[in-house]
Computed example of a mutant assay.
Amino acid sequence: MSVGAAIALAVGGTLLMAAGLTWMALRFNREYNEHEKAALARLRQELPKRGWTFAPRDDSIVELYNWWTEERTWRNPLEPFVKPPRAKAARDVITGSHRGRPFVAAVLDTHYQGEHVWARCIWIRTPAVRPALGVSKVPALESGINAGPGMGDLRFGNPEFDDKFEVRTGSDAFAAAVLNPAVIRFLLAERCRLRGLRFFGDQFDVSDQYTFDHRDPAELIPALDLRCDILDRIPSAVWAQGA
């Protein structure tokens, strides 16, 4: 094969690959636009029925997010000078009540280590402000390492839970009250869906693997149900004054 033919083949292959990538990008954008249009149509139907409100932008929750990341996030001791994420704006903000609990759902425009990151939040307000508590699903080996002296991971006497979840908190008593046997059983049953949960101030959020567009009621309502199902298993005494 001549040099010219080899170059022609290489150029042709590159052009075909570029055309394929362009086609895939156009198809993805078309499918996303179709999904967004359908999701927003479903949301417009649900808003008046449920008494929810929608705002394209509402930065009132930005301050709370930044307070939480600055004051209540457990930092990596190996990276003491790395600052936590900070939000600049809140977009597609939905507020309302679900199963008698106030909530806010939004996408936060955040910056972290020089990069722009979209952070989705679906927060349910708790009856009272309580200490910070974070529960995250981790590999068993990592959970075991973090349970070592001085690492801060609590253990609850349930080997399956202790191996699969890491617990960080500002109050051991609050963590023990929240992570009672009923909640632990629920978290283990839902472990394929859950990545973690956190309490901060008077807000509660869950990290799950199936909520991609909070504007779609078909995704938002199950996400809210998941959070309420966990809160339903926490005794009301946990929120009592002085608890």
Rank of each mutant, 00 (worst) to 15 (best):
residue 171 S to A: 11
residue 126 T to K: 05
residue 148 G to S: 13
residue 171 S to V: 11
residue 158 N to S: 01
residue 112 Y to N: 02
residue 164 K to V: 04
residue 131 P to K: 12
residue 156 F to P: 00
residue 108 L to C: 07
residue 174 F to R: 07
residue 141 L to N: 13
residue 132 A to E: 14
residue 129 V to W: 00
residue 147 A to H: 14
residue 131 P to I: 07
residue 170 G to P: 09
residue 152 G to Q: 14
residue 139 P to C: 15
residue 117 V to Y: 15
residue 167 V to D: 02
residue 169 T to G: 05
residue 144 G to A: 05
residue 150 G to L: 03
residue 158 N to L: 01
residue 140 A to E: 09
residue 169 T to I: 05
residue 160 E to Y: 04
residue 124 I to H: 06
residue 135 V to H: 00
residue 114 G to E: 03
residue 155 R to V: 06
residue 172 D to P: 15
residue 174 F to M: 06
residue 113 Q to N: 15
residue 132 A to F: 15
residue 133 L to S: 05
residue 130 R to Y: 01
residue 155 R to W: 02
residue 122 I to T: 12
residue 154 L to Q: 08
residue 131 P to A: 12
residue 130 R to N: 00
residue 149 P to N: 09
residue 124 I to K: 09
residue 141 L to C: 06
residue 138 V to G: 10
residue 126 T to C: 00
residue 173 A to H: 15
residue 150 G to K: 07
residue 131 P to H: 11
residue 167 V to Y: 03
residue 110 T to Y: 01
residue 137 K to F: 05
residue 115 E to T: 09
residue 124 I to N: 06
residue 122 I to P: 13
residue 128 A to L: 01
residue 172 D to C: 11
residue 137 K to A: 01
residue 136 S to Y: 09
residue 119 A to R: 13
residue 159 P to A: 13
residue 119 A to L: 11
residue 159 P to H: 12
residue 118 W to H: 08
residue 164 K to P: 00
residue 173 A to Q: 14
residue 123 W to Y: 12
residue 132 A to S: 10
residue 143 S to A: 14
residue 157 G to D: 05
residue 143 S to T: 11
residue 146 N to P: 02
residue 150 G to M: 02
residue 125 R to Y: 10
residue 145 I to C: 08
residue 133 L to I: 05
residue 116 H to G: 01
residue 127 P to Q: 05
residue 109 D to Y: 07
residue 133 L to E: 05
residue 120 R to P: 00
residue 172 D to G: 12
residue 173 A to V: 15
residue 136 S to A: 08
residue 169 T to C: 02
residue 128 A to Y: 04
residue 133 L to N: 06
residue 108 L to P: 05
residue 120 R to Q: 13
residue 117 V to R: 10
residue 119 A to T: 11
residue 121 C to P: 05
residue 118 W to R: 11
residue 151 M to I: 08
residue 116 H to D: 10
residue 144 G to Q: 15
residue 169 T to W: 00
residue 171 S to N: 13
residue 113 Q to C: 11
residue 131 P to D: 13
residue 130 R to V: 02
residue 154 L to I: 07
residue 132 A to G: 14
residue 164 K to L: 11
residue 156 F to H: 01
residue 142 E to W: 09
residue 165 F to E: 00
residue 165 F to Y: 10
residue 163 D to A: 15
residue 167 V to F: 01
